[in-house]
Nucleic acid binder design. Structure first.
Lengths: 217, 217
DNA sequence: GTGTAAAGTGACTGACCAGTCAGTAATCAG
DNA sequence: CTGATTACTGACTGGTCAGTCACTTTACAC
């Protein structure tokens, strides 16, 4: 009495981990770590529950890998390429950074991972650390570096560059979270397109960094 | 064989709901909605599990009440009193707002509630809505109002006041979350005192709002 | 073909826990 | 002091699910 409906068994044990992780991200994203059922993850991946245990020792390990892999995988695609135009003004470079960063943060996998990390930060301090090191610190260094250059050139006002970068990250990440497909977190926010919100973020950032004029008298 | 260790039974059915909610906030905060055990909540409240069901119909209802009551209770203490000094400059009023807001957001109950709301936003859109209306929108209106006045007086540059207020909220809330007792989310952030971080937030905000100088030529 | 190893399955088990309820203890009215 | 009422208790039940494992299926070598 064993009908495997699709007749696809033993198809590529190399792809399994990836399939499982993808399905797991969705289910964990919907139900959280504790609420997710391994059976559902298996079903969404098109395999049986037991198969998961061929590739991951237990639920918690699977969860950790979901976070790790999603972060790593997404980062590879975030190729903020500043070397293309190393002599551009800091303002132009910062613009490019912010635009890419905004795209990155708005993608569903990123948002899901951030939510999961925030949810579980009590129980998995090491995951928070990993996430923080790979995503936040990396972004911070990139943006902070550009700001530092701008400050040095007098393009931006004097400010601690990495503190400023932190402010930008906070604004961007939170707006990405708040703009999710769910109920709007803020009045008027769900009426705006991502591009309009980006314009607001950009505007605020630029004005916070613009130089202080010399006293003319 | 019934030792109730403290011999305090039937003591104040009026206080029970509050006791239970307080214990529940802690346990939910540590383990999330699904992971929290009602038995643990009962123990922390110093009562038996069954007693919870005298006051709340089930776990989910208890969770909802935890969020509702914590938000409402905390808001009562957030008496941002601008009427005391209605003629102060917008900058001074904004300073007062930000300081109070920062204190409010940094308190443990607020941080726990925010984390829980973010964790469960998939499953409880109505809770998100409640939270958003009571906390975020309220804060937004207050701060947005002050900024609007500042813009009208020429104290601040022209900017959509509620968008600006949203930027401030994003910065403040995220920094409060990141500064938690857990592992630091950002390098260098855990080395700073709350006051220092507040100074950075304040500095960034002020410069983002400062007026654009007239062209002198 | 036949045999063997690798990959996958899903019924099963044991732990866990939300929610129940028969019973116990405190309190109070008369 | 007695009986009635209200507050509380915690052993128990039924359902759920992580994790296991004896078995089936596929792939591949010869």
């Amino acid at each position: 009495m064993s009908f495997t409906c699709d007749a696809v068994r033993r198809r590529a044990p190399d792809e399994r981990p990836h399939q499982i992780l993808e399905a797991a991200l969705e289910i964990f994203g919907e139900h959280g770590l504790v609420g997710a059922r391994l059976e559902d993850i298996a079903r969404r991946a098109g395999i049986a529950k037991g198969t998961i245990y061929l590739y991951f020792p237990n639920k918690e390990a699977l969860f950790r890998e979901v976070i790790r892999q999603t972060v790593i995988d997404r980062l590879d695609r975030l190729a903020v390429d500043l070397s293309a135009d190393p002599d551009a003004s800091a303002a132009v470079q910062l613009d490019a950074c912010m635009a890419q960063w905004w795209n990155y943060l708005r993608a569903e996998p990123y948002r899901t991972v951030y939510r999961l990390v925030v949810s579980e930060l009590q129980r998995f301090p090491d995951l928070v650390e990993f996430y923080s090191a790979e995503v936040l610190t990396r972004g911070n260094r990139l943006i902070g570096g550009v700001i530092a250059r701008g400050v040095a050139h007098g393009e931006f006002r004097p400010i601690e560059p990495y503190a400023a970068a932190r402010m930008l990250s906070a604004m961007f990440i939170t707006h990405s979270l708040w703009m999710g497909p769910n109920q709007s977190f803020m009045p008027t926010l769900h009426e705006l397109s991502p591009d309009q919100v980006f314009a607001q973020l950009r505007d605020f950032a630029c004005h916070a960094l613009r130089p202080i004029p010399e006293p003319t008298a």
